[in-house]
Design a protein around this nucleic acid. Structure first.
Lengths: 401, 401
DNA sequence: ATGTCTTTTGTTGAAAATCAACATTACGTT
DNA sequence: AACGTAATGTTGATTTTCAACAAAAGACAT
């Protein structure tokens, strides 16, 4: 039986290899302080679990070249799913987050959990089959949903746009069909995770803002995704802004950021002003984006003003959280650099110099894949955690007896 | 030599006893899963370090009553120091944070670090002597300073009101005289720690706001004090508020919260309006507080409005961080409940219901001691950390050889 | 007071985990 | 092909941890 209690189980050693970098045994000995023979034992376990694999030998430093081991990204498969209001994306990834296969589908979240999750289960199965993978290889499923989620239980809590989902036991339902661990979170939180992992791996304090039909943010502070007491941290769409005054919002209040700067508000304002694009009136967000990209002045001005409005709220966030990066995604962010320009204009002029000196404000680099990548990150994070790997090692142990 | 690598060192066991609760060996066996003999070995080490002590036996459950051990609060001494702009408080505490002795002194922070820290060292020495304690018993010193501090190095960074302190190596200077570990942080951060520990021990998401000469906040999210990228998280005094418009602030911007709602602003406004109290004009914060407590209407209105202004910023914080508690301290908070009333009025009416449903907004319960308590908490937290105790155990080990 | 029951405690040998030393192998260099 | 260097495989020693047993200490009933 392998050491039950020493903090230094195979799982602990594995954490050193999670970055994917190949390491020689000598290196591991130096890092851990354990004897080489002990390291060998741990490595044997991890090799048997297929979690690590030998890679080509390192170059000789004068004598016999040392063998190297590294994370085996193909050891298990992860499913990453990003549900939007009317669209869903699904990908299978390896343990580095590399996408092995993907699908998107029109999917109305309001059709309810059985419908949406049923599609998800079927699609995961067919994607696995297409890649000639077994269901047993699937170790975890990360799911992003467009509403507040109690992450610890995987249940949505009072989601405004997801009728039928309130308090639905998502992991319970999914595990009825697939036995992988299920992790659920709000879609913006997941995008924040994805953006951080993909574009800013060494940054510990980052605000990710999504501006499209709604406006929301995901906050990573001290390297940890912040969910708050009720799991609704980062929900800045209904912060009131100065310019808002009497504009009513669907939340019942007035002057909310979302009522001023989100897609529908922009479309309505341009439409009321009689602005047209290609001879059609501007009615939905995609029209605004198209018009802006095409250089339509009124649309550009509207998007830039939305940037300023968002910047007003972000300025407070900068003072409160002191991040080093603000990353902005969502379709509005990709209608040229106009939204970003508005945000920068306000944040840099209104914040304290100490807070902005090292602050980067940038377009999301993960782009539309942020959600999928983040769902994958969240799932991988669990799958490769000490707890999960300890469990695998224990199972292997008892199987060997 | 005691196990070098097992996560389960004496230090790990000790973490279970940190709450001060007495535990029987049988309980520790059950919690840890280790054998009783192993537990005994760990306990022996901790007893030798004097960190735990036997307490009176538990009541019998039918057989021989079991002996119990518990944290020995008197094993070491902690120094906790809270520097304000013109005043400093110092306390010696035991390992539960109980205050053993305390002093306050008029102390101008602008006199520079040598002067202030020199006083601190002398005072710690005399307080130790008064309690008949040895300098070797002092294990850690927690210091709060009225400005931004890079916590990891203990150096102030660009503090506006602490000339001569910028980038000064506080731990280095102190260690020249006392060899205890020195931990430094911003005073509001420390008050947040103190308030959390003292009044809300089980709450993981809390915002502490201090309103007096300046306005600042300390943020504890996911149970961790958030310092941000540059150590200036929570610095909300210079967030602009809607009502601010053209009121200039000492920071160079205009409309800052501090320029509208902090002590000097209130005093000046009342003074300009010709308000008097006891025949004297209102010139400083303490006059405002006194007038408010005495029921002077104009002062009450001003304080309540300050509460609304602060509430405006806190509303955004609530959406961003989703805390379960907002605790408000600083002398303005104790001029009756008027400041609090203003804050509540705005936060509860403007925030989303989901965020305020379980939100408590309360006066600081640690009161003026929050800083001292927090400095003590920070120092204890280090002193009783696994790393620190492992080091003590290792030292004991080599001494025994 | 005495004896029995229950539970904790002290002790000791066994088992497991880890280390340290030695011989062996593989590669680069001359 | 011989030599030096560094990694690897193997084995016995050492340390750490466990598990079992006997002894001790109180509670309770007689």
């Amino acid at each position: 039986m392998q050491n039950k209690f020493t903090g230094f189980s195979s799982a602990t050693l594995f954490q050193l290899l999670r970055d994917g970098q190949p390491r020689t045994k000598a290196e591991l000995v130096k890092i851990t302080g354990l004897a080489r023979s002990t390291i060998q034992l741990r490595i044997d376990t991890l090799l048997e679990l297929d979690l690590i694999a030998p890679v080509n030998d390192a170059v000789s430093t004068g004598g016999r070249p040392s063998a190297q081991v590294a994370l085996n990204p193909k050891a298990r498969v992860i499913a990453a799913v990003d549900f939007g209001a009317s669209q869903a994306s699904l990908a299978l990834t390896d343990l580095t987050g590399e996408i092995l296969g993907r699908t998107s589908s029109r999917m109305i979240i309001a059709d309810g959990p059985e419908t949406c999750l049923g599609w998800m289960v079927r699609t995961i199965r067919s994607e696995l089959a297409a890649l000639h993978l077994k269901e047993a290889d699937l170790i975890a499923i990360g799911i992003g949903l467009p509403g507040p989620v109690e992450h610890s239980t995987g249940r949505p809590s009072n989601p405004p746009i997801m009728p039928g989902w309130d308090d639905f036991d998502v992991p319970g339902f999914v595990n009825h069909h697939l036995k992988a661990t299920v992790l659920v979170d709000n879609d913006v939180n997941i995008m924040a995770l994805g953006e951080q992992k993909f574009a800013w791996p060494d940054i510990e304090n980052i605000i990710f803002l999504k501006a499209s039909t709604g406006i929301g943010s995901g906050i990573i502070s001290s390297g940890v995704l912040q969910r708050g007491a009720e799991g609704i941290a980062g929900d800045i769409g209904h912060v009131q802004i100065a310019r808002g005054d009497n504009v009513p919002c669907r939340c019942g209040n007035s002057g909310c950021l979302e009522a001023m700067a989100a897609g529908p508000a922009l479309a309505q304002r341009l439409s009321l002003a009689g602005i047209e694009f290609n001879g059609n009136r501007i009615t939905v967000l995609s029209d605004v984006v198209a018009a802006t990209k095409a250089g339509e002045l009124a649309a550009i001005q509207a998007v830039r003003q939305a940037g300023r409005d968002i910047g007003e709220v972000l300025t407070t966030c900068v003072s409160v959280l002191n991040p080093s990066v603000i990353s902005i995604g969502g379709s509005l962010a990709f209608a040229g650099e106009h939204l970003l320009a508005g945000v920068r204009e306000v944040v840099y002029s209104r914040s304290m110099p100490l807070a902005t000196e090292h602050l980067t404000i940038a377009q999301s680099r993960a782009g539309l894949d942020a959600g999928i990548i983040g769902a994958s990150v969240m799932a991988i994070d669990y799958a490769l955690s000490t707890a999960s790997i300890d469990a695998m090692a224990a199972a292997l142990e008892s199987a060997n007896t």
